[in-house]
Design a binder for these strands. Structure first.
Lengths: 114, 114
DNA sequence: GTTTTAGATTGACGAATCTCGATACAGCGT
DNA sequence: ACGCTGTATCGAGATTCGTCAATCTAAAAC
């Protein structure tokens, strides 16, 4: 009788009472992934990675069929997400991949099961 | 004279003529990052990671103050991005992190400078 | 077959996002 | 000081996205 009652409970419940599952905070990564979740911005990252060095904004612009304000906007988003660094030298601004960003990717990767 | 001419060019040009920089294709990662670029979906990933096992949809829903259709929608997006797997067993659907997704994150990481 | 319950789908609305033209700002050269 | 060039910011329009209530489908129990 007891045995049967337990069996019934097991069938009825899909979730055997996990009241307080405490996942690691993922909020810090939202901005990171939101920034990477755009075709143009990802291509900018690929461009900087392929260059292996810093590129000036005009260089990046010339690789797209997008207006200058649009590229500038994307560069700003990448900068604010900590994915790239931008340094003004004279008239031009040079952008490069921020290596700390790669580290944060590794962190998240470990978090989700690496 | 020749020397001086070269110097002038170096000053005037920020981009020393890199006509065909051929970055690795980043397009395949767009959907991946777009899916991760949402607070709720990222938290679902954290939940599944913390569980270390599959969870049924009802379990995931109970951790949010969002409607059932909304969670279902997010789960679909994560599934279509290859980030999680969903398997129906009887009445319930069980979700788990797709380990291949972690591998793709590592790929991208290597691409941008790991 | 009917009822019940877990999930998925549909349609609609508000918010966020991408894009552009126009404009403003920063540095260099004259 | 003035103009010129590279970059950033400011609206505004168009599209995408997150959310919900309502509805539909799938599987199990009766």
């Amino acid at each position: 009788m007891v045995k049967r009652a337990l069996a019934e409970v097991a069938v009825e419940a899909c979730c055997p009472s996990q009241p307080k599952l405490r996942p690691a905070p993922t909020t810090p990564y939202v901005k990171l992934f939101k920034s990477l979740g755009d075709e143009t911005r990802l291509e900018i990252m690929g461009l900087l990675a392929a260059a292996g060095a810093e590129l000036c904004a005009c260089d990046i612009e010339s690789h797209f069929n997008l207006s200058q304000p649009t590229i500038s906007h994307h560069l700003k988003i990448l900068r604010e997400a900590g994915l790239i660094t931008g340094e003004r030298r004279g008239t031009w601004v040079y952008y490069a991949i921020d290596r700390a960003a790669v580290a944060r990717l590794a962190e998240f990767q470990k978090l989700v099961g690496g």
